[in-house]
Amino acid sequence: MADGIALLCMLYPESAPKQERCLGLLRTNAREYYRQPSAKCTTWSYFQPLKPGKQPVIGGLEIYTSKAALQAQVNDTIYFQPYHETVKRESLYSKPEELVAWYQTDGFVARGKGSKEGEGVLISTTRMECKDRRKVIDVLQGFVTWVEENEPGVLTYAIFTRPKAANEVLLFVRYVDGKALRAHAEAPEHVEVVKALTAQQKSNTTQMWKEVRDSFVSNTEGGNGVQSKL
């Protein structure tokens, strides 16, 4: 996926009912468009805050095989453009959506057919501002294999960077449930990684989310991938 591009999306529905309207439209897209091989979308995961605030928000991560694949999605007249036309016509958003492009540097997005799956997939997004980004990436890369081999409850552990923010790293993690999240956080290996990262960071912000039903994550073009059952 050297040429792949990831979009971290933040959508701001105007109200709770309009948030449900947006989610309904997004679920249709996930089922009927993004799982087609022609979409060239290897990841589609949408999520809501674990602890909702006053302002409704929907987060999302989409990964495409190339910038051309992303542009093809933007040009789609069956799902993508009608979605935005509906948003405008029904005034679904309180403010414009935020889209930030990232590129996967290391880690795994999905484990494949043998994945453990639960009733409530949790997600953490951690955005780090680094003193030395290379050292932060080295620490995380050294931890990826251990997570993949020892924590089946961690469904995704993916590291992203972007050229326009030379000191930033995004860590995107999906957990099968709260038990898996706690086990990961309390593992001695993770505690050591946090210590090493802290020494190389200026700041970091972590947000917790719950994956939306019918979201999916897959390493195979058009595959159903690992699906939430929320």
Score class of each variant (00 low, 15 high):
142 G>K: 00
151 E>A: 13
141 Q>F: 04
141 Q>R: 15
172 F>K: 07
145 T>P: 05
157 Y>H: 04
162 R>E: 12
145 T>R: 13
135 K>R: 12
134 R>V: 05
149 E>H: 12
119 E>G: 15
124 S>I: 10
133 R>D: 01
120 G>I: 04
145 T>Q: 12
140 L>H: 03
119 E>Y: 09
141 Q>N: 14
145 T>I: 06
154 V>R: 00
168 E>C: 08
169 V>D: 04
148 E>T: 05
119 E>K: 15
124 S>Y: 04
163 P>L: 06
119 E>D: 14
136 V>M: 03
140 L>S: 01
147 V>H: 00
137 I>F: 01
169 V>I: 13
127 R>G: 07
139 V>T: 08
156 T>Q: 15
146 W>Y: 14
134 R>I: 04
147 V>C: 07
164 K>M: 08
132 D>G: 01
164 K>R: 13
169 V>G: 06
165 A>T: 09
134 R>Y: 04
148 E>C: 07
138 D>P: 01
150 N>I: 02
127 R>Y: 06
140 L>E: 02
134 R>K: 13
136 V>K: 00
136 V>L: 04
142 G>N: 00
119 E>L: 11
124 S>F: 05
123 I>L: 10
130 C>P: 01
136 V>W: 03
154 V>H: 01
121 V>W: 06
164 K>W: 05
163 P>S: 08
142 G>Q: 00
139 V>H: 14
172 F>Y: 15
137 I>D: 02
121 V>N: 07
157 Y>A: 04
133 R>N: 02
143 F>T: 08
119 E>F: 08
141 Q>E: 13
125 T>S: 12
136 V>F: 02
141 Q>Y: 05
153 G>A: 01
127 R>P: 03
153 G>W: 02
125 T>K: 10
121 V>A: 08
144 V>Y: 04
133 R>Q: 03
172 F>N: 10
153 G>P: 00
123 I>S: 05
154 V>L: 03
161 T>M: 06
152 P>K: 00
141 Q>P: 02
167 N>C: 05
170 L>A: 10
133 R>M: 00
123 I>G: 04
151 E>Q: 15
129 E>V: 09
162 R>H: 09
170 L>T: 05
126 T>V: 13
138 D>L: 10
154 V>N: 03
131 K>Y: 05
159 I>L: 15
150 N>W: 06
122 L>R: 12
149 E>W: 06
155 L>T: 13
150 N>V: 03
155 L>V: 11
139 V>F: 10
150 N>F: 06
162 R>L: 07
161 T>D: 15
121 V>Q: 10
171 L>M: 11
127 R>L: 14
134 R>D: 12
126 T>W: 02
123 I>Y: 04
